[in-house]
Amino acid sequence: MSRTPVSTSNAPAAIGPYSQAVRAGDTVYFSGQIPLDPVTGALVDGDITAQARRAFENLKAVAVAAGGSLADVVRVGLYVTDLGEFAEVNAVMAEYFDAPYPARSTIEVPALPKGARFEVDAVMVLG
C-alpha cells in the first residue's frame, strides 16, 4: 500500500522529521497539532480554550487538505498538561465534532513541544 504525505500551508509546518498527516488507502493518520499560528509559527496567546481552538483549527485544515473534514475523523487523542482543564478542552471539542463522536483518549503529560498546554492527533477514514 502506498503512503501519501498530506501538507497544507493552512496549518503549521512540521517542526521535525514528520508529515502533517499521511494517507494510506482511505485512512489518514494525523500528526499531533499543537496551538501554533500557521502564519507566524508562534504559540498562540491565551488560556487552554484558546490553545485548544487553535489546535483543532489546525487539525481541521489538515483534514481538508487530505480531502475530508472533521466529520470523517474516527479517533482523536488529546494531550493536556493539566487534567484540571479537561472540562474546558471537552467544551472546545464539542464545538468541532457532532454525534456520533469519534473515539477518544485524553492523557495528561508533563510537557508538550514549544510549551503548549494542549495537543491533538487523529485518525480519519475517507470514502
Rank of each mutant, 00 (worst) to 15 (best):
D82E: 11
I48G: 05
Y79V: 01
A11Q: 02
M124E: 07
D37E: 10
A55R: 02
A63E: 06
A63C: 08
G32M: 07
G115Q: 04
I48R: 01
G68L: 13
F56R: 00
L70C: 06
P38W: 13
V92K: 02
R54I: 12
V109C: 07
F86Q: 00
M1C: 09
G32L: 05
A61Q: 09
D45N: 12
P38T: 03
T4G: 01
A116E: 04
R104P: 00
M93D: 04
D45F: 12
S2A: 13
D72N: 11
R104V: 08
G115P: 02
G115A: 10
V73P: 01
A116G: 13
Q20Y: 01
G77K: 06
G115I: 02
T4L: 08
Y18H: 10
Y79W: 07
R54F: 11
V125W: 15
L43H: 06
A71Q: 12
A122N: 04
L59M: 10
V123I: 15
A42E: 14
N90D: 14
A21V: 04
Y101N: 00
P35V: 11
P113A: 13
P100L: 15
A116I: 04
Y18E: 07
S31H: 03
S31R: 02
L70A: 03
G127D: 08
R54W: 10
D47E: 11
Q33D: 11
G32E: 11
S69T: 12
